[in-house]
């Protein structure tokens, strides 16, 4: 890397004091060459740091180490967390993974299996037939959920989110907007399901044995378990706006209460509602404990599927499922944010 110091020194001369903050961590005199490994912006700082390095306060350990240290910790944590995800994603396209690295690229067999387009028996003699995959998807997208754990979990989680929207948003509104007897109780009740899914699952089975394993039972359970996240996200959104005045403005302008709620209050809380929906959906789709207790028939929910496959030979299918799940969360998040903002703009 070329040292821009000589060029920049003259350019930046006059500005030097205003850039003290960036120069302090990359002082060439005191900090060795640490600054030269950074990006150009940091190098710019090296220059100004050199000029003002006479100040004693700049040599304090926190000033010298602060930024590089934080950056290093952040990057290593990030790498540590991202590495498994990347390897899993890459491996999901491999035929086998027996050694250190996966091998036998590229196959879509695991993905197809996860997406419910092939049975487990087919997987071994799988050959790439993307056209067929696409045709199956377009012809009968609803057939897929029946076979695929991933899709089943997605639909069930979506059902849970819908229930949460219908129940959670009004609860959040009531708690944020009104003072009423039992308000604290309702608030506590809304947050109570933060209790582990296993407890709720057992209680659920005892109370409604006939609902065990049905889609309805799982949806209700997911919505109940994830309700606190929806209520908390939406409530904080409501509490950050002049709720009563918004409502009263709309009413005075001739909007009935339901109209006010749907066309002013809910859209103004869209950020909380969207993030609540994303959190609920992602958590419900991956819920293990409750699914484990309550599930009895049909395609296994995603978490159970992953658990069943994690130790056996079809680990690569698990890899594909995890990959699909990650992609879906990313896609759903992006789509909800884009669409949500647009869908809410109509008065």
């Amino acid at each position: 890397m070329t040292d821009p110091a000589t060029d920049d020194r003259t350019d930046n001369d006059g500005d030097a004091p205003t850039h003290d903050w960036s120069g302090s961590d990359a002082d060439p005199a005191a900090g060795g060459g640490s600054g030269s490994d950074g990006d150009p912006a940091t190098d710019g700082g090296t220059v100004t740091g050199g000029i003002t390095s006479g100040h004693a306060w700049q040599r304090s350990p926190s000033a010298l180490l602060g930024r590089p240290l934080v950056t290093a910790i952040f990057l290593s944590t990030f790498a540590f967390l991202v590495f498994p995800v990347v390897v899993t994603f890459v491996a999901s396209f491999a035929r086998e993974w027996t050694g250190v690295l996966p091998s036998g690229f590229v196959t879509f067999a695991h993905w197809e299996q996860v997406l419910g387009l092939a049975s487990y028996e087919d997987a071994a003699n799988y050959s790439l037939r993307l056209g067929e995959v696409l045709r199956a998807l377009t012809e009968n997208p609803l057939a897929a959920p029946g076979k695929s754990p991933l899709f089943r979990s997605m639909w069930l989680a979506l059902g849970g989110v819908l229930v949460n929207l219908v129940v959670g948003v009004p609860i959040a509104y009531a708690v944020a907007r009104y003072e009423f007897p039992g308000r604290d109780l309702l608030n506590a009740f809304a947050v109570l399901p933060l209790a582990p899914g296993i407890i709720l699952g057992v209680a659920f089975l005892r109370a409604f044995p006939e609902l065990s394993g049905t889609d309805f039972g799982l949806i209700v359970g997911y919505s109940l378990l994830k309700a606190p996240f929806m209520v908390m996200a939406v409530q904080s959104s409501f509490e950050s706006m002049p709720l009563r005045q918004l409502e009263e403005s709309a009413r005075s302008l001739g909007a009935s209460w339901p109209r006010t709620f749907l066309s002013v209050i809910v859209p103004n809380a869209r950020r909380g509602i969207i993030s609540g929906a994303i959190i609920c959906w992602a958590l419900a789709a991956a819920e293990f404990n409750f699914s484990y207790i309550v599930f009895s028939r049909g395609a296994r929910p995603l978490a159970l599927f992953l658990k069943a496959n994690i130790s056996n030979s079809s680990f690569l299918t698990t890899a594909a499922a995890v990959s699909v799940f990650f992609l879906l969360i990313a896609a759903v998040t992006a789509a909800l944010q884009l669409l949500g903002n647009r869908a809410f703009t109509t008065g």
Partner: peptide, 19 residues
């Protein structure tokens, strides 16, 4: 209130920021 035809202006303005 919605049938009184009364205009209201608040200190917080309370504009609808979805519009």
């Amino acid at each position: 209130p919605e049938r009184r035809n009364v205009g209201l202006v608040f200190q917080s303005y309370a504009l609808f920021d979805n519009m």
